[in-house]
Design a protein around this nucleic acid. Structure first.
Lengths: 207, 207
DNA sequence: TTTTGTTTTTGACACGATGTCGAAAAATCA
DNA sequence: TGATTTTTCGACATCGTGTCAAAAACAAAA
């Protein structure tokens, strides 16, 4: 057995950084190999394919990100939990310079319609999986809030709505790159879901 | 002057059909050339570059789509207008087999972080432009509805919210491919915005 | 210590895509 | 009919992915 000359986790980190900034198709294995100081062939030997490397790197990210969200959604009033959730989400999209956007959303849009082109069905499930997990976290927070009387709607529908908004924010980030606008939309969403939209609007219209 | 042997508009239609189904990066000029019965070089001669061809084709789509939305948002009660708007949006995302998704959202996610890779700044503005136009249409409908007492919130904030949801629907379509779920989210959004969420929830919980 | 064996590394190859360029072909105008 | 202009065609350079076989490096057995 000849030992590997590079660190598996280092390469995953370096690879995901590139994938995040430039997307799956926009990142070449040559780029990653150069950055990691490894030969291209070694990457194929260690990971099998560009897609397999991406999935390993992405799953790492997904697990870490999910843990952060869980923490944000686990303390304080429901309103504060949702605010923290959106804060983290937007900070994630706008991190880096230039902002890197949302890897999940980008990945979903890079799915290939045909065979061989772009990411495939396994990737789709991996992305969908993270979204489902996040939805569950949000729904749990809403259910807990409902029991404490902080929320009187349908947790399932509201959670889906909130997730949809976060996905929309990921898209608007690419379109306008205006973090302040994203925060406004998020705040408005929290208001809507917690049924305080009207008071908020009145305050805004009063000034 | 020798006249062109192919129809400019035909090629645009054929090209956009491929771009829509397979994305910008997933579509090769060879594909388009084969489908259109034209040589690859002729496409470069007529359009300049793959990106220029995409932009021409996309702008056609955007103009047509915007006209449809305008029509949907221009008749009936505010609730019906918004419902028609979401119907059209979702039908657009789910059209084709397999569903083609949202070309705007996909395009935004295919923007290149670096130079030369993927779509560039001009494309970003083109996408952002369509989104802005649609936002204006929705906002106008909400303002009109507000005057007629069908809506009592802030039209600007509500329009932005609705647009964000449509972008989110485009992403969820890719993740889950469940048109019925998209319709549910859309209906819930209309309820939220028109401030009927609670009654609706009560009805749902009653059954 | 030497040998054997296994895995990694390395470089070359095949293939396909983009984009450019020059030569050939074709159609219109004079 | 002939000249000119534009299109078309095919070849080329470059870059990306993915595969393969040979070389290299280490571990363990003899």
């Amino acid at each position: 057995m000849r030992p590997r000359e590079f660190d598996h986790d280092d390469v995953l980190r370096i690879a995901f950084d590139q994938f995040w900034r430039k997307g799956f198709r926009g990142t070449s294995l040559s780029d990653i190999a150069r950055d990691a100081g490894v030969q291209r062939g070694s990457l194929y030997n260690a990971f099998g394919s560009k897609e397999a490397l991406f999935l390993q790197a992405y799953r790492r990210y997904a697990a870490d990100y999910l843990a952060l969200l869980q923490k944000a959604l686990g303390a304080g009033s429901l309103r504060n939990r949702l605010a923290a959730f959106f804060d983290l989400t937007i900070a994630n999209f706008c991190s880096g310079s230039p902002p890197r956007g949302c890897p999940t959303t980008r990945g979903l849009m890079e799915l290939g319609a045909a065979e061989g082109e772009g990411l495939d069905e396994e990737a789709r499930q991996t992305f969908a999986n993270l979204i489902s997990h996040i939805t569950t976290l949000v729904q749990d927070a809403l259910s807990a809030g409902a029991e404490r009387g902080e929320f009187k709607g349908n947790p399932e529908a509201a959670a889906l709505h909130i997730i949809t908004v976060t996905r929309g924010l990921a898209v608007l980030e690419r379109a306008f790159g205006d973090e302040a606008q994203l925060r406004k939309i998020a705040a408005h969403t929290v208001d809507l879901v917690l049924d305080k939209a009207n008071e908020t609007v009145s305050r805004k219209q009063a000034r």
